Amino acid sequence: MATDAALRRLLRLHRTEIAVAVDSAFPLLHALADHDVVPEDKFQETLHLKEKEGCPQAFHALLSWLLTQDSTAILDFWRVLFKDYNLERYGRLQPILDSFPKDVDLSQPRKGRKPPAVPKALVPPPRLPTKRKASEEARAAAPAALTPRGTASPGSQLKAKPPKKPESSAEQQRLPLGNGIQTMSASVQRAVAMSSGDVPGARGAVEGILIQQVFESGGSKKCIQVGGEFYTPSKFEDSGSGKNKARSSSGPKPLVRAKGAQGAAPGGGEARLGQQGSVPAPLALPSDPQLHQKNEDECAVCRDGGELICCDGCPRAFHLACLSPPLREIPSGTWRCSSCLQATVQEVQPRAEEPRPQEPPVETPLPPGLRSAGEEVRGPPGEPLAGMDTTLVYKHLPAPPSAAPLPGLDSSALHPLLCVGPEGQQNLAPGARCGVCGDGTDVLRCTHCAAAFHWRCHFPAGTSRPGTGLRCRSCSGDVTPAPVEGVLAPSPARLAPGPAKDDTASHEPALH
């Protein structure tokens, strides 16, 4: 009773807030009518008042009428009001819900409408889902798969039609296919003929059939049928067999079959498995989609049935006599038709004709302190090069084509190399640097090759510096006499390219 009084008091307290929050009759008014909170006449009256005075006034009048009803109607109103779709449509209802007392429970059932309790003993237990329907569909599909699609060729003596089998029958139906081979029951999904010589313990000319048996419980189990008994694959494991010639990621696949039913060829011909030897223990289905393919039931050349050999690369099948050149017997292992072999060759040939990528240039590290003349020119003028003790990398590039010797140069053309002071002394051009340390401070000019250098860098042994005729380390061993002091540049003949010694390969005349 306390809860009923509290709900009535809360409705009177929030009546105006609810009326202002509800700006549309749908969905709240319609939901109240659906849950029998508002009768039909009051529903029509509220809609009429909404058209006349507006939605807030109409709902305020409806809530005032609701306060005169019993506690069950008020409880049902609060339940409908706080439904998710009403809270989404009328956003101003959320503060009312947040301020609702926590001790007021809106989930209690309506009085007088409590459903009768059902004894637990009368409640049926839930049924577990079964796979009976899938099993029945598999039974119905198996006879259809064994139905012949056409008439065999005159040369083929193997013609068999499976008798119709009602689904209610649980007995196995067997077809006489000759040579002791028996087909599987209607619940078998796949059958492959297997030679009895590969099964340990088999006697006589009995041949087993590799099947997948579907049981009534819905589970499946792969086994071997020899005669009327089934054997699990673990009985046929043979770890010492060295003649297993397995197909790549293979499961067994029928390579020879008669049109209309699988079996042995007439005249004692023995149908073979995809792999010879003992049956392997793992009978998992292969991951290669080509091995799941269903080959055609007629020859791809003459479009006739009979004894066919199936290609492992495509769905086509052929007569042995229709092949070019014809085959006398079934080859062992994987067999592919000429079209598949030709496609494989065409895929391999473009790969062989692809040009080989060019090898990157060989990189040879230079000892610290040495650099090529090109690196000396590329440096920024007026700045010493940083990191001189790091190992430089010199790339061996292809030799350029031989060019004509340089033409003779006048001494005026070499004027930018040297600057003559007032006393006739050779001065260095701006930006000249030593080729060893890279520093341009207090550098000297070689009178023979006009290269800038430090005496301490080229002659670290402490050799005394002569007063005139300074030469760098590369030119100090040259027998050519030094030019007379005061000459602007060496003779043009000295600039012609010539053979250089091994220790002077990195010091070429550089223009500054």
Rank of each mutant, 00 (worst) to 15 (best):
R203I: 13
K235S: 08
S239T: 12
Q172C: 12
L255Q: 10
A5S: 13
Y90G: 00
L97N: 01
L62H: 00
A160E: 01
D23N: 00
L177M: 15
P254N: 01
P115E: 07
K111N: 14
A141K: 13
K253D: 00
T72P: 05
L255E: 05
K259I: 05
S250I: 11
F215L: 07
T147N: 13
F26E: 00
E45K: 03
R247Y: 06
A152S: 06
F26H: 00
D23K: 00
Q69D: 03
L29H: 01
F82V: 02
L128N: 10
E237P: 06
V118S: 08
S234Q: 13
D23C: 01
H14M: 00
H14W: 03
R15W: 02
S220R: 11
S250F: 12
R149A: 13
S249P: 04
K102P: 00
Q262A: 13
K102Q: 15
S220P: 01
D76E: 02
R9F: 01
V118L: 09
S248V: 07
A205I: 01
E207K: 02
V192P: 06
S156E: 04
I18T: 01
R79P: 00
R15H: 01
E88F: 02
W65A: 00
L81K: 00
K131F: 02
S64D: 00
P129G: 09
F82M: 00
G269K: 11
R15I: 04
L7S: 03
Q213K: 10
G197K: 06
R8A: 00
F100I: 02
K222F: 00
A246I: 04
V118W: 12
G54D: 07
G268V: 10
Q182H: 15
V123C: 13
K259P: 07
F43S: 02
D238E: 06
G112T: 14
P129N: 08
F43H: 00
A265K: 06
Q108L: 02
V22F: 01
L273I: 11
P254Q: 13
Q69E: 02
G219R: 08
L97W: 00
T130A: 15
A2G: 05
G228L: 00
V80G: 06
D98Y: 02
I211F: 02
Q212W: 01
A265N: 15
K52S: 08
G268H: 05
A21Y: 02
Q157M: 04
H35V: 02
P95Y: 15
L10V: 01
P115D: 02
V206Y: 09
K133N: 01
R132V: 00
Q225H: 09
S248F: 11
H14G: 03
P124C: 12
E45T: 01
P163K: 14
G150A: 00
Q69A: 02
S248W: 10
P176V: 15
A134K: 00
V188P: 05
S185M: 00
S196H: 10
P154W: 12
G178E: 04
